[in-house]
């Protein structure tokens, strides 16, 4: 089983700990995971902002870089959804415009082997107890693309419930968007902020110390609001909770010197 990590551009630069956590977790579960360095970005920012043509080279790149692997695992619901939901559409549209140039094949190759992390753990590896230890009170925000486009369902919950030491709290209005939405956060800052504040308010009512998610872009937005408000809440990617063990507990140290 040849498994590649698609870390995503945001995680690569801003959240390397999440990528490291995925490697740690998968290796602990006996998976030999590789990181082909030709990878960059799935193209979601371009595509969702209306730059479909600029996305096409990235579709080719994604398919080519991961040609030799059976599984592509990514710790981002929205990037997985971009590949699985939009790559076929991009290929179809290009074909309709007479610019097919191998995009259909690229999409067809990429789509079936792209897995969001919790799908890979639960569906492919067949595990829900990954041997993690995380003695904190946690509430989980299911990001929209994972929830609705991928249909992750209760996979993240099943994984979190099996973590030792964890106290899980149900997030009110969990299925409501956090207000990030890529360039939405910039183009509609007031609505974006209002939605983020509501999400944080809901998280605080649970009494949790940790707001956990499976998409760092959403967490980046929420974390930005939280630190500005000096709210007693931390954001942590699900992979980092699942990677945490008694021997090697979760530590936010490498994220930034001035954090927490």
């Amino acid at each position: 089983m040849r498994v590649a990590l698609f870390v995503t551009c945001v995680n690569d630069v801003l959240y390397p700990d999440t990528g490291r956590a995925v490697v740690t977790l998968l290796e602990r579960l006996g998976v030999d995971v590789d990181f082909p360095t030709g990878q960059s970005c799935c193209g979601q920012p371009q595509y969702n902002t209306g730059y479909r043509h600029q996305t096409e080279p990235l579709v080719h790149r994604y398919a080519t870089v991961f040609t030799d692997y059976d599984y592509i695992v990514t710790p981002s619901g929205s990037c997985a959804a971009m590949v699985r939901d939009n790559y076929p559409k991009i290929a179809q549209r290009a074909t309709a415009e007479g610019r097919e140039s191998g995009l259909s094949r690229a999409a067809a190759a990429a789509v079936p082997k792209t897995y969001e992390l919790t799908e890979f753990l639960v569906d492919v590896l067949g595990v829900t107890d990954v041997g993690a230890y995380f003695p904190h009170t946690v509430t989980y925000h299911p990001s929209c693309h994972g929830l609705r486009t991928l249909g992750l369902g209760d996979r993240p919950h099943r994984l979190l419930q099996a973590v030792r030491g964890i106290t899980l709290r149900e997030l009110p209005a969990a299925d409501e968007c956090c207000g990030f939405g890529g360039t939405f956060a910039i183009k509609n800052p007031d609505v974006s902020t209002a939605m983020g504040h509501d999400k944080i308010t809901h998280a605080l009512t649970t009494g949790a110390d940790i707001l956990c998610g499976a998409d760092n872009s959403c967490l980046m937005h929420l974390h930005g609001l939280i630190t500005r408000q000096h709210t007693p809440l931390h954001t942590v990617h699900l992979a980092e909770i699942l990677a945490s063990t008694k021997e090697h507990p979760y530590t936010p140290a490498t994220k930034a010197g001035n954090l927490r």
């Binding site: 390397p16 937005h221 930005g224 930034a256």
Partner: peptide, 16 residues
């Protein structure tokens, strides 16, 4: 309304 995320010292690929 939001702080920018701090930039870590190393990228993931650098670590890898």
């Amino acid at each position: 309304t939001r702080d920018l995320p701090p930039v870590p010292a190393r990228t993931f690929r650098d670590w890898w």
